[in-house]
């Protein structure tokens, strides 16, 4: 059901990975993604797998949590694998077959790339509270405020959206059940009919979201919210020794990735 979506879910903990400054983690994930797209040979991919496995082990997040989050992506992953498997030219694995050794290699690499990309970002959201994440993002993007970009408002909107995802999912489930109890049918019929069948869900959902937004604005105002100006933070973000160490490791990792790329391995 809808409730099983783990997007943006945070698993509180007190590991090294949890304690890192969100800015450090954001930078490291960026580094990881760059390295992932740099990787060409098996050594490059191996390095990325190793880096991910190491961080995951440190974070004590169970692999099962990642698989659950990956579920909605199975289709894309399988499709990527099949396309690479069947459409790569090279030496057939058996005479006359269209599957080639090169195809297998590319399929594995592409699937690895998608998996690591998604799971790497999951590791970030699993170990960083969305509040800390948006705070970190706001600080990293702070220089852009000089360009008059509404960074505080943007990041606040992001964190509130994350906060309300579970609430809205629950509400959607409830409205769907209520309409099904009145005989609504969301499963049969052509495209137009199915789109029409969504109205009894969408309209109440939008109406209630507007009400929520109004209530929430009143509640925030009542709690002295008056924009980003003059606001302080309970959790001060301070780059500690471990952050500097982690960033150094990240830099070394990136350098190694570039070297591997240069030698094409």
């Amino acid at each position: 059901m809808l409730k099983d979506i783990t997007l943006g879910q945070f698993f509180p903990g007190d590991t090294l990975v949890h304690r890192l400054d969100p800015r450090t983690k954001l930078l490291l994930v960026t580094v990881f993604i760059v390295a992932l797209f740099t990787a060409a040979g098996w050594m490059g991919y191996g390095l990325c797998v190793l880096a991910f496995a190491g961080c995951t082990a440190l974070s004590k997040i169970r692999l099962r949590a990642f698989f659950k989050g990956l579920k909605p992506m199975i289709f894309i992953i399988v499709l990527t694998a099949l396309l690479n498997l069947f459409y790569t030219r090279g030496t057939p694995i058996l005479p006359g077959w269209i599957i080639t050794w090169e195809g297998i290699g590319r399929a594995v690499k592409m699937v690895l790339r998608i998996l690591l990309l998604v799971m790497g970002t999951f590791l970030l959201t699993y170990t960083t509270s969305p509040m800390a994440l948006t705070d970190g993002l706001e600080l990293l993007l702070n220089p852009l405020k000089k360009l008059r970009l509404p960074i505080h408002e943007m990041t606040l909107m992001m964190s509130m959206a994350l906060r309300f995802i579970p609430t809205l999912i629950e509400e959607t489930d409830r409205i769907m059940s209520a309409q099904r109890a009145r005989g609504a049918d969301f499963e049969t019929g052509g495209l137009v009919r199915r789109a029409k069948a969504l109205l009894p869900i969408l309209v109440p959902l939008i109406v209630s979201s507007f009400n929520r937004a109004y209530d929430l604005a009143t509640a925030m105002e009542s709690r002295c919210y008056h924009g980003g100006e003059g606001r302080s933070r309970m959790k001060q973000l301070k780059l500690a020794g471990i952050d500097l160490a982690a960033l150094a490791v990240g830099a070394a990792f990136l350098a190694l990735a570039f070297i591997l790329k240069k030698y094409g391995v």
């Binding site: 509270s129 509040m131 906060r163 609430t167 929430l216 509640a219």
Partner: peptide, 11 residues
């Protein structure tokens, strides 16, 4: 539900 703004109680 409509007055809690953050994802963690203490935040």
């Amino acid at each position: 539900d409509n007055q809690i703004v953050a994802n963690v109680v203490e935040d």
